[in-house]
């Protein structure tokens, strides 16, 4: 399929190969030859987001908030300071606000203009978060989108959608599931799903 990528020949990117994997390879080769990119640094960035920086970080924050009332209060008052203290400050998480789900309010996060997401806490966003469908619909019909995720709200809950239009990154503090009384933060963390921290899921109790 030649030439199917070059709708806009005025843009420089139109001269790149049509196969995306080859396009990236061409850029990497060129920038490496020019001495501007270190392929080992690329490997290091990929390793960081593939293995080290991901939703397990956010889950530790949530589990601690469920078990430590003073930490929870600090987290809701100044999210940036509280997550920094746990070592989760960094790129795309420089300004953090944590919003709490209650029987009255369900919070849900989107970025309609691009794909803003709290990287140090949740890692790289999943494809659905970056999809046109989610970006377009989460603000207009959040309840219909939640249904597509299998989430049923309490009849008492209003929905508050946070559109991440600036550099403030939002993390949802889900409600602690029933049947988890007496569990430690380490035991609770695996119950905190990524989607629960975006607000497209809820934290579920341990399987009986």
């Amino acid at each position: 399929m030649p030439h199917d990528h070059a709708h806009d020949p005025d843009h420089a990117h139109a001269v790149l190969p049509s196969e995306p994997a080859l396009r990236v390879k061409a850029l990497e080769t060129l920038l490496t030859e020019k001495g501007l990119v270190d392929p080992a640094a690329l490997d290091e960035i990929i390793d960081s987001y593939q293995d080290k920086i991901g939703p397990k970080n956010g889950a530790k924050v949530i589990a601690r908030a469920w078990t430590d009332p003073a930490f929870k209060a600090a987290l809701l008052a100044d999210g940036t300071a509280a997550v920094s203290e746990m070592g989760f400050y960094g790129r795309q998480g420089e300004h953090v606000t944590v919003v709490e789900n209650t029987p009255e309010v369900h919070n849900m996060v989107v970025c309609t203009l691009c794909s803003c997401y709290p990287w140090p806490l949740l890692g790289i966003p999943p494809a659905w978060y970056k999809s046109d469908a989610y970006r377009a619909r989460a603000v207009r019909e959040p309840r219909a989108v939640l249904a597509e995720f299998g989430v049923t709200l309490l009849p008492t809950q209003k929905v508050r959608v946070w559109d991440s239009t600036a550099e403030m990154r939002y993390l949802v503090l889900p409600m602690r599931p029933e049947g988890t009384e007496g569990m430690s933060a380490a035991e609770l963390a695996p119950l905190v799903s990524r989607d629960a921290m975006v607000g497209t899921g809820i934290a579920r109790g341990p399987k009986p």
Binding site: V139, P142, R143, K158, V159, R160, V161, W162, D163, S164, T165, A166, M168
Partner: peptide, 8 residues
């Protein structure tokens, strides 16, 4: 009851 919040 629902609302949308934006940083502006």
């Amino acid at each position: 009851r629902d609302e949308v919040i934006l940083d502006l």
